[in-house]
Design a binder for these strands. Structure first.
Lengths: 220, 220
DNA sequence: CCTACCGATCGGTAGG
DNA sequence: CCTACCGATCGGTAGG
């Protein structure tokens, strides 16, 4: 480093306002590193499971040293909870947007169900879809306290399905008790996480078609 | 201990035949301890997951010391594999017996499907049903080698469903591509492991009814 | 966010 | 199948 360069740095420091020091472009983004941890954790938790994933794995995947995740999260469990919460929030936002989209409420119930099913598949299997599958398959790794907390979000999510299924039941298109039907339907969709391979086989479109054909009586 | 009692013990030893010493009734049964380990492991793997379960947990649940499981199994993974294999073997035997039961082949396809569904629910949720759920939810914890080995049993199991679903598709009672239908149906059933509570709510009978009503078009 | 580290736990083994 | 133990790994922390 030349004396001039050093001088520049010192000058820059001298000109800084009080309080939290600014960082350079490369190091900026406070939330950036935290988000990198979340993404890495979601991916690893999904692939290997929570207990089999090391905080060191996660740190490495986010380009950090082994102790650094604990600067952002109090514990490994807190990281898991954050992953699940982000997953549920985005899934809820996604479905709510679909439900309140213009004209959606005027569609026949079968078409409304299709919207829910398609969005659900996308949340589970689409790009960047590691968060919700972790929520689905690792919730027992969470302390009961936080399981209850997530339970509210899950209840909200499931509540979106009930009016649609009730309407379909009333019209004779759905021929099973509504609450059991919801559990079975969501199970059929959730299980796709275990076998769906985006590289080969069916598209999400075909999957949605098959699910609709399976669950609903054709009334036309 | 009185001198007489000690004398009796010594005499008993003197009268024993050569070779492997006989054990008393309480300690007998070579395969007994192994089976106790399998049962304990299945239960713990199901409740806490494979990675979160300690071989010490399993040993304690079977009434052994921490190192003893390794007298019966080469490794923790070998224990997991044995649990899964036993689960698949019993499930296969169960379904095959149902399929070849007298008169079963003469039943209409819908009734045959009901038999498969009911037996599947019982394998997942009935008494002593920890083995297959472990197989379903922990297979990623197995080395690829053994995953492939289990894959054959799984393929055999799924093959039992195909002719029945094909017949239902032909008759118009099932309205979705057969292979996707099988994946979705088994998913709906398998997911019940996550929510079914035998203490409250529906019975396996009601569950089966709901599934049949959901999947099949009524043709009567 | 890194360096250096601790205490606990865990799968597995030797030797009986 | 038990006793006694080892080596490695892991979640987490102090101090900067």
């Amino acid at each position: 480093m030349t004396p001039d360069a050093a001088q520049t740095l010192v000058d820059a420091t001298a000109k800084r306002p009080r309080g939290r020091p600014r960082k350079t472009v490369d190091e900026r983004d406070d939330g950036n590193r935290r988000q990198a941890l979340l993404t890495a954790a979601a991916q690893l938790f999904r692939r290997k499971g929570f207990a089999a994933t090391t905080t060191r794995d996660i740190a490495a995947a986010a380009g950090m040293q082994s102790g650094s995740p604990f600067y952002h999260f109090k514990s490994k469990e807190a990281l898991l909870y954050a992953v699940m919460e982000e997953g549920m929030h985005s899934a809820l936002a996604r479905q709510r947007a679909a439900v309140v989209a213009p004209g959606q409420a005027d569609l026949p119930p079968a078409a409304q169900l299709r919207t829910l099913v398609q969005a659900h598949f996308d949340v589970l299997l689409g790009p960047g879809s590691d968060f919700v599958p972790v929520m689905l398959y690792e919730s027992r790794s969470l302390p009961q306290r936080q399981q209850k907390s997530l339970g509210k979000l899950i209840a909200d999510y499931e509540a979106l399905w009930l009016p649609v299924l009730t309407a379909l039941h009333a019209s004779g298109e759905l021929n099973a008790p509504v609450r059991l039907a919801r559990l079975l339907i969501l199970g059929a969709l959730n299980w796709s996480v275990q076998w769906f391979d985006p590289q080969k086989g069916a598209s999400l479109q075909e999957l949605t078609d098959a699910a609709m054909a399976l669950f609903l009586k054709t009334t036309d």
